[in-house]
Design a protein around this nucleic acid. Structure first.
Lengths: 204, 204
DNA sequence: ATAGTAATTGAACAGTGTTCAATATTTATA
DNA sequence: TATAAATATTGAACACTGTTCAATTACTAT
């Protein structure tokens, strides 16, 4: 039996999260089981339930880590350059999103594969992490809207983000049919962004 | 024991598919288990494995039915009207897609929740069902591209389809943060389509 | 040294997909 | 018609899953 004072509650939580992250990385969401985590950290399965309410609870936490990592990548990068046009910056952001999806494929997929039981909602802090991501795109859309048009700008950010995401998702899960000429997804997101923004500019 | 000649192989397959469809409708993808299906059709769990290779195999078949139903809805509807503009038709198509996602929520979600085991690919007939859906949108994009630009048109169709899908998905799974002013997703897809097409028109 | 508290355990429960020897039923043959 | 061969159906068994909780162990305060 692991000694009670081997690790504090916080340490234990850290260990479980770290182990879970690594398991998802290696074997995907499907490989993440309570017994496997327990084995990896050298504790019994029951211990996990002392720290987390349920496996769903743990999954939400892991997803939170993934959202943090994604936010890190997007905020510490070169997609807010004032020397480049907003469209260039947006394209770059889409590219970074795509690269993230590839590099952290299993974690990224888990973000959308894992669903809370019917009727249960993600906690507020989780929602906020998502909102924070959208805001980065809202910023880049600023030049195209007046201050009075903030809701519209927010909508545009959501639409564009979801669109880029949809392209990445369908492509990454093989649910988009290939074109003979094989246009790659970066081109698709780029094409979408270019024309969407061109359309917005045209109106004003 | 069910008598061997109670139902033919084909009848049995039909029964299993029908029962599965209904289970997904009632209890979602999560409720679809071999034992549950067996109980519903009055056979033993093993029987399902005489007809289908695995539960994954069965799931792909169910997804095929969903794709068929979606194709039916889109093809037998009013989104190809020559009296309306292509943009209007496209917006209508997006709206129909969204309505389908709501009406057959569980089946539609299963389309993206269910993933084949790592490395396994969906059968060719399945890929073709997807390709067929994209073609309906390709048709609507025809006025904006010359014959030489077919690959580009195909890419535009894929990008737009995936984009609309992404918006529906993030919204339907609660993974898109609400805007204070609460713009609804039909507006989002409409806004996206409008501007994307406006952008394309501008270039030519 | 003892009593009380808290962490840890792992067996148990009700599920899951899947397999496969045994059984029941039908068909073909003698 | 009686028997043999072939096929459909079964359900127990296996190795899993998330989750619970009484029992055990370890630590703390008295």
């Amino acid at each position: 039996m692991a000694r009670r004072s081997d690790h504090s509650r916080d340490e234990l939580k850290e260990m479980i999260l770290k182990a879970s992250w690594d398991i998802v990385e290696k074997d995907g969401f499907i490989g993440l089981t309570a017994r496997r985590i327990a084995k990896d950290i050298g504790y019994a399965p029951g211990t996990i339930y002392n720290i987390f309410k349920s496996m769903d609870d743990l999954c939400v936490e892991i997803n939170g880590m993934t959202l943090d990592k994604l936010h890190d990548v997007l905020s510490k990068s070169d997609c807010y350059s004032p020397k480049k046009s907003p469209v260039q910056n947006m394209k770059r952001m889409a590219q970074l999103y795509r690269e993230f999806a590839r590099e952290y494929r299993a974690h990224w997929l888990m973000l959308f594969t894992h669903a809370l039981p019917e009727g249960q909602k993600a906690p507020a802090w989780y929602q906020e992490k998502i909102a924070r991501l959208f805001e980065s795109l809202e910023g880049l859309l600023e030049p195209f809207y007046t201050a009075r048009q903030l809701p519209k700008r927010k909508m545009a950010a959501r639409a564009l983000w979801a669109a880029v995401h949809g392209i990445c998702l369908l492509e990454e899960t093989g649910k988009i049919p290939a074109i003979d000429d094989q246009e790659s997804p970066p081109d698709m997101t780029g094409y979408l962004i270019e024309n969407f923004i061109a359309g917005i500019k045209k109106k004003t």
